[in-house]
Simulated scan of single mutants.
Amino acid sequence: MTLQVHNLVGGYSQIPVLHQVSFEVHPGELVGLIGLNGAGKSTTINHLIGLLHPFSGSIVLNQHDIATDPIGYKQQIAYVPETPILYDELTLREHIALTIKAYQLDHDEAWQRATSLLKKFRLENKLDWFPADFSKGMKQKVMIVCAFITNAQLFIVDEPFYGLDPLAVRDLLDIIEDRKQAGAAVLMSTHVLDTAEKYCDRFVLLSNGRVKFRGTLAEMRQATDDPQASLNDIYLNMAKGEQDG
Rank of each mutant, 00 (worst) to 15 (best):
G137K: 06
Q140L: 03
S135R: 03
L127Y: 11
W111L: 09
D133C: 07
S135M: 07
V142C: 06
E109A: 15
L117I: 14
R113F: 09
K136S: 05
S135E: 11
S116V: 15
F121W: 10
Q104Y: 14
N151T: 11
G137Q: 08
E159Y: 05
A132L: 08
R122F: 09
K139S: 07
K120A: 10
F155V: 00
K136D: 08
T150L: 03
P160Y: 07
W129R: 10
F148Y: 03
G163H: 01
Q104C: 14
F130D: 06
M143W: 05
A110M: 08
G137H: 10
I149F: 01
A110V: 13
R122P: 01
M143V: 07
H107M: 13
H107D: 13
L154S: 05
L123I: 05
F130H: 08
G163E: 00
S116A: 15
I156S: 01
S135L: 04
M138F: 04
F155D: 01
Q104A: 15
M143D: 11
P131A: 03
D128E: 14
R122T: 13
K120W: 11
E124Y: 13
P131R: 05
C146H: 02
N151V: 06
D108C: 09
D128S: 05
H107L: 14
K136M: 11
M143F: 01
A132E: 14
M143H: 02
N151M: 06
A147S: 01
F161P: 04
L154E: 07
Y103F: 12
L105R: 06
R122G: 06
K126L: 09
K120D: 12
A132K: 11
W111M: 06
L118Y: 12
H107G: 04
Q112E: 14
M143I: 01
L127Q: 12
L154Y: 10
L127N: 09
L127M: 08
W111P: 05
H107N: 10
I144G: 00
L127K: 11
A114W: 13
R122I: 10
N125M: 09
P160S: 01
S135A: 05
S116I: 15
F121I: 10
W129I: 04
L118I: 14
R113A: 13
A132I: 08
F121R: 04
Q104L: 14
F134V: 04
K126G: 05
L117G: 06
Q112Y: 12
T150P: 02
K136F: 14
G137T: 08
F121G: 03
S116Q: 15
S135V: 02
G137A: 09
P131Y: 14
M138W: 07
Y162D: 14
Y162S: 13
Y162A: 12
K120G: 07
N125E: 15
N125Q: 13
V145I: 14
F155M: 00
C146F: 06
I156A: 01
R113H: 15
D106G: 10
P131V: 05
I156F: 02
L117T: 09
F134N: 03
H107Q: 13
G137W: 09
F148R: 00
R113W: 10
W111D: 10
L117C: 08
L105D: 07
S116H: 15
Q153R: 07
L123Y: 07
A110Y: 06
